Amino acid sequence: MSSGRVRASIPTRADRVLDQIRLDILNGQLEPGARLGFADLGARYAVSTGVLREVLPRLVEQGLATSEPQLGFRVIEVSVDRLNQLTEARVAIETLVTRTAVADGDLAWEADVVAKHHALARLTEATSAGQIQADWIAAHEQFHLAILSGCANSYLFDIAHRLRSVAEVYRCWSAPEQEIAHRDIAAEHRGLMDAAISRQADLAAERTDAHIRRTTELLIAAQAARHPAS
């Protein structure tokens, strides 16, 4: 199976605006619960209401926004309870998709995983404490999706992709200095790559489980530190 799950067509104006808004949600520029009004977004991204009417429902489909009658569009809300539920869903789905990817992926998939890991590793080395760069966010997503893309079942892949996108919103809680002190993120990613391309399905699933849960633990700890109980 080919590992390429990218749009073959030339990106439209709506595609580009979607990518811009999506990145701003993931890096915290548009905070959880923030209203996504047509006037504000139109001014911020220099785009027409017509384009936004196409883009915002796509954000809802990706799980990054909500829409309610009379209330319009908003960035999704976040909470510890929601994160815990999301984590259990991700562990169940991503470990399954990872196992399937290890079984289904071909040599092109292996090469793509290695290439995406190399790009992420270089950016991880260059990323300074306290600064999560847009390029790192994109490379991080592409590395994990490269592993999952070996799965031949497109329904499972799409579910895993959507859950990963929602989870990225919780980076608004992240404390980079805490990650440096309490985990070796580069080693975790390298371990995931090694297990995947060496076709060790059980190990790859085990490391995926641990990687997801460790991220959740650190995010909840960071949120607790920001808002200590009175």
Rank of each mutant, 00 (worst) to 15 (best):
S149W: 02
A39Y: 07
A46P: 01
L192R: 11
L41C: 04
A39V: 13
F38M: 09
T95Y: 02
R5T: 08
V97P: 06
N27W: 01
V91D: 05
C151A: 15
H211M: 09
A126Q: 15
E206F: 03
D184C: 02
S198N: 12
H117V: 03
D158I: 00
Q178E: 12
A186S: 11
G50V: 05
G28L: 05
I10E: 14
T100L: 13
L23Q: 13
A138K: 14
V55I: 05
E188Y: 09
Y170S: 03
S3R: 09
A115G: 10
R207W: 09
A115H: 08
R214I: 06
G37E: 07
I132G: 13
R183E: 13
A119Q: 14
L30G: 02
A175Y: 09
A205R: 06
G42E: 03
D209E: 15
V78F: 03
A101R: 03
Q29E: 12
N27R: 15
A108F: 10
A111F: 09
L52P: 00
I197E: 00
A92T: 12
I197A: 02
L218E: 07
N153W: 07
I147V: 15
L52N: 02
E125D: 14
V113Q: 04
R53Q: 14
Y45S: 00
E125L: 13
L26A: 10
G33T: 04
A204P: 03
D194H: 10
H117E: 10
E177P: 02
R82T: 01
G63Y: 06
Q85V: 09
P228R: 07
E77M: 02
A129L: 10
H144V: 10
R58S: 07
N84W: 07
T208V: 04
A134C: 03
G130P: 01
E54F: 00
P176Y: 01
Q178V: 15
T124D: 15
R213W: 03
D19L: 08
L86A: 05
T98M: 12
A195G: 01
P57M: 06
I147H: 02
I132C: 09
R16Q: 12
D40P: 00
I159M: 12
D184T: 01
G4T: 14
V91R: 07
L59Y: 05
D202M: 08
R207Y: 11
L86V: 01
A111D: 14
S9G: 08
L218T: 04
L120W: 14
A115Q: 11
S9N: 08
D158Q: 13
E206A: 15
A8W: 09
A146F: 04
S230A: 14
L107K: 13
R226A: 14
